[in-house]
Each structure stands twice: as C-alpha cells, then as structure tokens.
Write a protein that binds this DNA or RNA. Structure first.
Lengths: 128, 128
DNA sequence: ATATCACCTGGAGTTAACTCCAGGTCAAGT
DNA sequence: ACTTGACCTGGAGTTAACTCCAGGTGATAT
C-alpha cells in the first residue's frame, strides 16, 4: 500500500505517518527500490492500533515504549502487559472525570432550557 | 481567600490561576488595597467549574467564549446553551472513542495474561 | 531599619504533538 | 529531452496550554 492510500484509509496526513515512523511510534516501513514506502498488512495494523490509542488520549511516549518493547521480542511480554495495564488505569480515570463533567453539562443545559422557556414566556406576555 | 488557598484547594498552581485570569478563562478577581488577589465564593465556584471542564478536555478557547458570553448577561443564555450542547456532543464522542479503546486494551491485556501463563508453564517444564 | 516573604506584572520559555518547507529523486506522460 | 507529480529526507515552524522568570511592592518579623 502506498502512503497516500494509508493516509486516506486511516485519516492521518502523510506528514503524520512519516512523523510516527520517524519517532518510532510505528515500526520501520520498507521502501521499494526507488525509496518509496510500501506498507504491508502488518504496517497497516500498527497504524490502525496507534490511531485508536491516540484517539483515546494515550501519550505518544508510552506508545513508543510499547513499540520498542514489542521489537525486543517475547522477553518483554510482561513489561508490555504492565505498560498497557497502567495506561488502562489512567484511561479509566479520565473516563470517570469525563462522566462527572458530562452529568454536570447535562444539568447545566437543562437549566438553560428552563431559562430559555421562561424568557420566551416573558416575551409572549409582553406581546399580549 | 488568598491565591495560595485557592491554589491548594483546587490543586492548580498560582501561575495557572493567574494565567486563567489573564486570558479571561475566569472573570477578573478583585485585589485588596495592596494589590493582592482576594477570591470571593463566586470566584472559587468559577475556578472549580473551569477545573472540572478542563479535566474533561474541553478546550480553553470554548471556555473563554463561555465566560465572555456569561459576562454579557442574560441576552446570551441561548448562545451559552448552544455552546455547552456542542461541547457536550464532542465530549460524548471522545467518551465513545475511549470506550472502544478500553475494550481493546482489556482484550489485549487478557491475551498477554495468557502468554505470561504459557511462558511460566514453559519455564516450569524446563525446570523439570 | 532592614531583611524576609508572599504576591504582583508583563513577557519569555517549555512541552507535546504535530505540520510545513526546501531541496532532491524518480517514474511517467508529451 | 523535458516537465510534472508523488514521494523522499532532515530540519524548522506552529499551536495549545501552561510554566518560569526578572524586577518590583507591601506587610511582617528581628
């Protein structure tokens, strides 16, 4: 797959894809004889995985470490599990915070609805 | 309340509190005769509200607009409601993304657990 | 009286995560 | 042969959201 296709498919710019590779956030992608990237199926799975994790707010640094561990092979399975477990913990914490904020927003929006209705009634009364 | 107390209470640095005020993220806080900030109850409620919204990832820009609208009075109630509704929509979207990622992490961690167990068994076998 | 300390202001510096750019290569169309 | 267009690299620039700093003021402890 060309970089243009991967860019399209996962909605990441070519610059971002190159950047992710540069910093080791996805493993090195092979080039063809003229030096152009040719993404394999596995490369694509990495891109998709990283995109998903980034969307949820996992920091790049943690993901780079994960990829680095992955490249080191089966010895690092324990470390990888720990890393993901820690990130999951933080993710859950963020979700809890967001849930609280969501409830608060719901309440505030409802209150505003009341105000708007009240204001409309006032206007109606004024018209009569 | 002094800035030190507010800083302590809401776990925001004094620099952050001053910064928030500077950019209009919280309304202007009154100073005493010697020029030092003296936070009222209402100031504190703003700080707490902003902290909660920021924790959930609402962008500062949107919150500044909200505060600006608030300062303009009751005319802007409709606009404020719209703003919060839009932010709520985006918040929900982020939560959905995070939920997907969480499930994926759960699955991945479970798989790693299998691997670790398998590895331990291998080691045990090797010992025998 | 003076030293200390918390606070003030305006402005510069930092960090994470991209995003853009200049200058160069290569294959394909004309 | 020449132009065009997609892609390459290494490095510089940008944005959001702080964070730090220098130089200054006023209240308090010695």
């Amino acid at each position: 797959m060309t970089i243009a296709e991967v860019s399209e498919k996962y909605d990441l710019t070519q610059d971002t894809l190159r950047y992710y590779e540069r910093i080791g956030l996805i493993p090195h992608v092979n080039r063809n004889k003229s030096g152009i990237r040719d993404y394999t199926e596995e490369d694509c799975r990495w891109v998709e995985f990283i995109k998903c994790m980034r969307n949820a707010g996992l920091p790049i640094e943690a993901l780079i470490e994960y990829v680095t561990l992955f490249k080191q092979g089966a010895e690092t399975i324990g470390a990888r599990k720990e890393l993901l477990t820690e990130q999951r913990k933080q993710l859950i914490q963020r979700m809890v915070d967001m849930q609280k904020t969501l409830e608060r927003l719901n309440y505030k929006i409802e209150s505003y609805e009341q105000s708007v209705v009240k204001k409309e009634k006032e206007l109606k009364r004024a018209e009569e």
